[in-house]
C-alpha cells in the first residue's frame, strides 16, 4: 500500500486524539477536582458486606457505562465506520473491555493503588465481595504498570485505537481492511511517541501490554461464567443487556 505521509499521520493523530477526549468519560479537569478522595473505612466495609450478586451487578453496570463511551470512541475513529458492520461488531465485542482497562489508568491513583469507582477512589479490598481477588489484583497491577509509562492523552488515544483495531480477532470478514487500519494507527502511535521524544522502549512495552489485556479479558469471561453458573437468574434479569450481549 502507498507510504503514509507525515501529514496523514498528523491528521490521524489529531482525529483519534479528538475522538478520545470527546468520549473519555472523565475529563482531566474533573479528575483533578476530585482530589483523589478515597472511600472511608465504613464505606469500604459496606461494599465488602454487599451480597456477591449485588456487587457483581454494580460492577457490570459500571463496566457497561464505560463500554458505551468506548463504542462512541470507535465510531469516531477514521475508517472504523467504513468497515463492514460485522467487523465493527467483532472488534468492539472483543476489544471494548480492553480499551476500558487501558482508559482505567487515567482514573488510577498509583500511590494509593486505588481506582475511581462509584464516586470515589477504591482500593482492591472494596471489590472483595465479588470473589475474584486474583483478577482484581491483576487489573490493579495492569493499571499501575500502564500509569508508570505516564502516557499523554494523545498517546493513550492512539494506543486505545491500536488495541481496538486488532486484525487478529477471529470472525473478521475483511481482515485486510482492519490490518491496513491497524498498521496506520501503529505508525501514528510511533509518530506521536517520537514527536513527544519518548525513549525507544515505550512502543515495545505497549505491545507487551496487549497480551496482558487479552488475558485480563479472558479471565473476566471465565469469572462471569462461573458466577452465572451459580446465579443464572440474577444475570438474566439484573445485568445490563449490553453487558450480556458482549460477554454472555
Amino acid at each position: 500500500s502507498p507510504p503514509v505521509s507525515m501529514a496523514e499521520l498528523d491528521h490521524l493523530v489529531q482525529i483519534i486524539s479528538k475522538s478520545h477526549l470527546e468520549t473519555c468519560q472523565y475529563l482531566r479537569e474533573e479528575l483533578q477536582q476530585m482530589s483523589w478522595q478515597s472511600f472511608l473505612q465504613d464505606e469500604v466495609e459496606s461494599y465488602q458486606n454487599k451480597p456477591r450478586e449485588a456487587m457483581w451487578q454494580l460492577c457490570a453496570v459500571k463496566i457497561t457505562e464505560a463500554i458505551q463511551y468506548v463504542v462512541e470512541f470507535a465510531k469516531r475513529i477514521d475508517g472504523f465506520m467504513d468497515l463492514c458492520q460485522n467487523d465493527q461488531i467483532v472488534l468492539l465485542k472483543a476489544g471494548s473491555l480492553e480499551v476500558v482497562f487501558v482508559r482505567m489508568c487515567r482514573v488510577f491513583d498509583s500511590q494509593n493503588n486505588a481506582v475511581y469507582f462509584d464516586g470515589k477512589f477504591a482500593g482492591p479490598d472494596v471489590f472483595r465481595a465479588l470473589g475474584c481477588d486474583d483478577l482484581i489484583t491483576s487489573v490493579f497491577d495492569f493499571a499501575k504498570s500502564l500509569c508508570s509509562l505516564h502516557l499523554t492523552e494523545d498517546e493513550l488515544a492512539l494506543f486505545s485505537a491500536f488495541v481496538l483495531l486488532s486484525a487478529d480477532r477471529s470472525w473478521l470478514q475483511e481482515k485486510l481492511q482492519v490490518e491496513k487500519l491497524q498498521q496506520k494507527t501503529q505508525l501514528a502511535l510511533q509518530h506521536v511517541l517520537q514527536k513527544n521524544h519518548r525513549e525507544d522502549g515505550v512502543l515495545n512495552k505497549l505491545r507487551c501490554k496487549v497480551a496482558v489485556l487479552r488475558s485480563l479479558c479472558s479471565r473476566h469471561t471465565e469469572k462471569l461464567s462461573a458466577f452465572r453458573a451459580v446465579y443464572p437468574d440474577i444475570v438474566r434479569t439484573h445485568f445490563p443487556p449490553l453487558y450480556k450481549e458482549l460477554f454472555g
Binding site: V71, E72, K75, R76, Q85, I89, L242
Partner: peptide, 16 residues
C-alpha cells in the same frame, strides 16, 4: 448482527 442487536443499534445511532 442478530446476536448483537444493542451494539448494532449503538453503532447506527448518530455520534452523540
Amino acid at each position: 448482527k442478530e446476536k448483537h442487536k444493542i451494539l448494532h443499534q449503538l453503532l447506527q445511532n448518530s455520534t452523540s
